[in-house]
């Protein structure tokens, strides 16, 4: 068992246990922190697979931008208390059972599939930014441009949805007792 395998198992155990922590922790702030730890371990897997650009982008975009947005919204709503009402035991049990059954079904389906490839240890350079940029701007220029339009529309949509409406201030007083 060399350093590569030790790192692989360490990152795998960290990813799965932190993902379980996301689901099981009562406090939403703890869930966000566990999810950030999960993203860091997935970035470690990317580095082990020689996808350095994606590892950096994963840390910057997911752990840096998206999770900070989640944390900001949770702090803004003042949800960092353990007051969340839980679903009934039956529904929780049904969720665990259905997720586990899906896991078993995919495992059973993959048992006979021809998935016997191996990942070579030696470093390849397809994950570097030079090769990815060449591939992106030679073969995938149109999706790149369309994603820019998607970003613009998402930005405008978020601003329009999140804008405080001052025309009907009565609507926000509908259920004041549920705070």
């Amino acid at each position: 068992m060399d350093l590569f395998e030790i790192l692989f198992w360490l990152l795998t155990i960290m990813a799965i246990s932190c993902a379980l922590g996301v689901v099981l922790s009562r406090n939403p702030v703890n869930s966000v922190l566990f999810l950030i730890a999960t993203f860091f371990s997935i970035s470690g897997h990317y580095i082990l697979m020689n996808a350095q650009f994606l590892a950096i982008v994963n840390i910057i975009v997911y752990a840096g931008a998206i999770m900070v947005l989640f944390l900001f919204v949770i702090m803004l709503m003042n949800l960092n208390a353990d007051v969340e009402p839980q679903k009934s035991r039956l529904v929780q049990f049904a969720g665990i059972i259905s997720g586990g059954i899906l896991f078993l079904v995919i495992l059973a389906a993959l048992r006979d599939a021809r998935t016997h490839g191996t990942l070579e240890r030696e470093a390849t350079d397809i994950g570097l930014i030079k090769n990815l940029g060449k591939t992106l701007f030679q073969n995938y220029v149109l999706p790149f441009e369309i994603s820019s339009v998607l970003f613009l529309s998402a930005m405008i949509g978020a601003i329009v949805i999140g804008k405080k409406e001052s025309v009907h201030p009565v609507v926000s007083e509908r259920n004041p007792h549920q705070n």
Partner: peptide
């Protein structure tokens, strides 16, 4: 490193996400 390890890890993370969505 066999590809099955990565497949199992991905399935495990995906199913944990589904469990969280349902629970």
């Amino acid at each position: 490193m066999p590809i099955q390890y990565y497949i199992f890890l991905s399935i495990a993370l995906f199913c944990i996400g589904i469990m969280g969505t349902l629970m």
